[in-house]
Each structure stands twice: as structure tokens, then as C-alpha cells.
Design a protein around this nucleic acid. Structure first.
Lengths: 129, 129
DNA sequence: AACGATTTGACAATCGTTCTCATTAGTGTT
DNA sequence: AACACTAATGAGAACGATTGTCAAATCGTT
């Protein structure tokens, strides 16, 4: 259906995500690209991030302020994150127990079509100094 | 320091929260008040909700779309929610296990000043019809 | 009733994100 | 390589939720 064209800009966005550690906002990513000399529009960055997230090629999550943050995800399966508020450094976390717990709570109350968010934010060791 | 005045508007906002089931956005609450014949500005609703949330008199959380939703919380202690996307109906949920799990993950990686979000969204039985 | 400080409300401003639409550029075909 | 067809881009406008501004209204106290 949606044929993805391999444009210079899309390549660039993917490229940054490989270089950057942890989660970053679309605007940060745009700024980074511009600083790297890449000519790319902000809308394009947004569009590509959204489409990459739809295609499950990157992880997306919302931080405390409601911004969406993106990160190239290593594993293909569902997981959660421990994210540093300051530098975006991320630890990937599995929580099968929590997973199941959410599921069972939901179905116990007759809820369908369930999604959940489970993210941990904090300040990493480095940024504490 | 901040002495809270008991204004008609603040009373009204608290009042709605008592009447309304589940989580609702500031705008919904404003609309509801207006429909009830209460004359109140949108900014005022926002301000009161924020201050009530700060005072821990109401619960606040962000939904999938990044909107902030509010609800008068029954219990004073920390808890999570199972929220219906459609009507806002809410089940209050305790997850001591999940709680501790988050804590231990965070400290294991040297993160301080940790906060977490754990909310479950779905469609409740009624709204499935 | 009067006072001084806090709140209010209408509206402007902000911030992240999405939309619009004319232009550009992949991709498959001669 | 030149074409054609269509998706992707970019600049800026538009949007939606939320916050800021500031004069006017209101609360609680004297």
C-alpha cells in the first residue's frame, strides 16, 4: 500500500537515530540534523518520525511534559523504558509481570482494546553531578 | 504562603469533580460548568485544576493524545488507573508489586529522583456497544 | 464600609505538532 | 538518458491544549 521512498531526508533521520543515545524529541533531532549540515525541514522530520514509529522501526513515548520522544529501538518486542530526564539516556526494560498484571486488571473489569503506558523517568548517575 | 480563597468558581470546579465519574479534560469540565449555567472562564478552570492537582486534591494524568485529564481522587495514597477512552470511567488500581519493581529497576541503574507513569487505557463494557 | 491582596476573565501568546499546497525528486518504464 | 507518475518535501499557516497578561471584580479581614 504505502510504498516508502528512500529519500535523502528519510535516510538522514534514520541515521541520527542510530547515532543518538536514548530518547529525543523531534525538535532536538531536527536541530541535530541541521547542525550536521543536513538540509531538512522540521515537518519532514516529524513526518518521518511518525511513519517510522508506525512501522515500529522506532520507539515513541511521551515525557512528563507531553512531548513525544523517539528512539531507535533495538529489540522488536514490546518493552518499557527507564529514561533520564536530562540527557535522554535510556535503559530498556522488560516487565512481563507488569504486562500480565495490566492485562488481567483490564479484562477483569471488562475493558477491551487495551493499551498501557509504563515508563520510568529519573536522573541518571552522570547527570546528577 | 499561598492562601486559597474560597471563590464561587473554585467551589464550582470542585463541585463538578464530585459529580463527574472518571477522568475528564479541563475543557470538558469547563463546558460542563457552562452548561450547568455557571459563569466561569476557561483560564480559571485550568488554574484551579492545576492548583488542586498541586495540592493533591485531584488526580491528573495524561492520555494517549497528550491531554491532561483530571479526577477527584478518593484515596490519598499513590495509585494508578484503568481509564475508558470514551467515557472517562475509571477504575482505581493498586500495584504495589509494579511500584517496587519500578523502584528497584531505577536504583539498580543509579537513577535518582524517579517518577513513573503507569496507566491503562481501554474501552469499557458500556462503550463497546 | 473600606482596604489590600488574590482571583478572575477575555484575549493574546506559546509550544508542540499537523496541515496545505506548490515544488522537488524517487522509481519504474521506454 | 529522458519520461511520467506519484510520493515526499519545505515554508509557513493552522491547530489544539495550555499558560501568560493585566485591568477589573471579589474575598476575607479590619
Amino acid at each position: 500500500m504505502a510504498e516508502q521512498r528512500n529519500t535523502r531526508q528519510r535516510r538522514a533521520v534514520k541515521g541520527v537515530l542510530d547515532q543518538l543515545e536514548g530518547f529525543h524529541s523531534a525538535q532536538e533531532i531536527h536541530e541535530f540534523l541541521r547542525d550536521s549540515g543536513e538540509q531538512i525541514g522540521l515537518s519532514t522530520v516529524y513526518r518521518n518520525l511518525v511513519s517510522l514509529a508506525d512501522a515500529n522501526e522506532v520507539d515513541a513515548l511521551r515525557n512528563d511534559e507531553g512531548e513525544t520522544l523517539y528512539r531507535r529501538c533495538s529489540s522488536g518486542h514490546h518493552h518499557h523504558h527507564l529514561v533520564c530526564r536530562t540527557c535522554g539516556k535510556t535503559v530498556e526494560v522488560d516487565g512481563p509481570a507488569a504486562e500480565q498484571w495490566a492485562e488481567s486488571i483490564a479484562s477483569a473489569h471488562g475493558f477491551k482494546n487495551v493499551s498501557h503506558t509504563f515508563e520510568i523517568f529519573g536522573t541518571c548517575e552522570q547527570c546528577q553531578r
